[in-house]
Simulated scan of single mutants.
Amino acid sequence: MKKALLTASLATLLSAPVMADTVAGLYVGGQGWQTDTSGSFADTNSLANFNFDDETNTAFYVAVEHPLPLIPNLKVNHTSLDSQGKTTLQSDFTFNGTTYLAETGVSTLSDITTTDFILYYELFDNDLVSFDVGLNGKYVDGMLTVSPIAAEEESAVEGSREFSGVVPMVYSRVQVGLPFTGLAAYAEGSYLSIDDHKLSDFQVAVTYAFIDSLAVDMTVQVGYRRVNIDIEDLDNVYADLEYDGAFAGLEIHF
């Protein structure tokens, strides 16, 4: 009888963290991201390298988790990837029907947003470790612009290209926590390499829960994120752009 009671007590203690995390919850978060941008783009496969200034971009997300079996959880993440800069072309460059001659100074604008629609399952979920895996439909929507710096340039015509598309990706996230401290660390990412498109989106961060109550949890995040967009002929746009840098964020869990 004593052995049975002891076994039941241990089972209850071990399952308590898991059961606590299976209650339906809403996560809302935002991040400010200091972005270093590098790369090239064109409307043919002859890409030109451009210089970009550092920018502060943002990301906002919402996630809904529930205890229903077989039905995946949902996370939506919207990220801005805005960059601009000035470059002296090393060779002739044609974009949107306009040719910019070598040694021409041009301004470039990369106005891109991505929206991730993630369906995922929690394979493990407790105070020590959690592990999620799923699929991500990343919607990429952007416009690339090239224009001469000086109005007196011979080819003083601005060229712009808009593009958009949904790219399927594999998603995963792992988090390790230190119980009773409020501290945790996580790594989260999506990746795809299919046909001529290669996209990746990874971030790692340390978090601290400074409010932990029955009504609401609030957590600060400090980490590093890198996004690579390598696309071939997406709406007649070719690009190999990388965005990376440190970020800070806040997450609220209801």
Rank of each mutant, 00 (worst) to 15 (best):
D201S: 10
Q34D: 10
F95C: 02
A209V: 08
V62W: 04
I231W: 05
K198W: 08
R225S: 07
V227C: 08
I211T: 04
S80K: 03
V206M: 12
E103Y: 11
V227Y: 02
P67C: 01
M143S: 15
S155M: 13
E152G: 15
D230M: 08
S193E: 15
Y100G: 01
A156S: 09
E154V: 14
I211F: 06
D230L: 01
L119E: 09
L144E: 06
S9D: 13
F93G: 05
D92C: 05
D244S: 09
Q84P: 09
E188I: 10
V174G: 12
T56Y: 10
H66V: 04
V222R: 11
G142V: 00
A209C: 10
F124A: 14
Q34E: 12
I71N: 03
Q203I: 06
A185I: 11
V133R: 04
V220L: 07
F163R: 02
T22C: 10
R173H: 08
D141R: 06
L47E: 00
V216E: 05
E158D: 12
G97I: 03
G97K: 03
D21L: 14
H66E: 05
L10E: 14
T37Y: 02
S107F: 14
V157S: 05
S213Q: 12
R173L: 10
A42V: 00
A215R: 11
Q34R: 12
L13I: 09
I149W: 11
V167H: 13
P148Y: 04
E154A: 15
V146S: 00
S213D: 12
L5S: 14
Y224L: 05
D212E: 06
M1S: 13
D233G: 10
L241G: 00
G182A: 08
T7P: 12
A48S: 12
I194A: 15
N57A: 11
R226D: 08
N236D: 12
Q175A: 15
D240Q: 00
G97R: 05
A239I: 06
H197N: 14
Y191H: 01
F163T: 03
I229V: 08
Q34A: 12
F50S: 02
V146Y: 00
R173M: 09
E162T: 13
T115Y: 06
T88H: 04
N57D: 13
G223F: 01
V204H: 06
Y139H: 12
V62L: 14
H66R: 04
V146P: 00
V157A: 07
G85C: 03
T114P: 01
P67V: 05
E188Q: 10
P72Y: 07
L14T: 08
S91E: 03
Y224W: 14
D233N: 11
T113N: 10
S172D: 09
V18L: 14
L250E: 02
T113I: 11
L214T: 13
E251F: 08
V166R: 07
W33K: 01
I252C: 01
S9Q: 14
A20D: 08
T114G: 00
L101F: 13
L26M: 07
S9H: 13
E232I: 15
V133T: 05
G159H: 02
T56P: 09
F254D: 07
N228H: 03
H66M: 07
E232N: 14
L13Y: 11
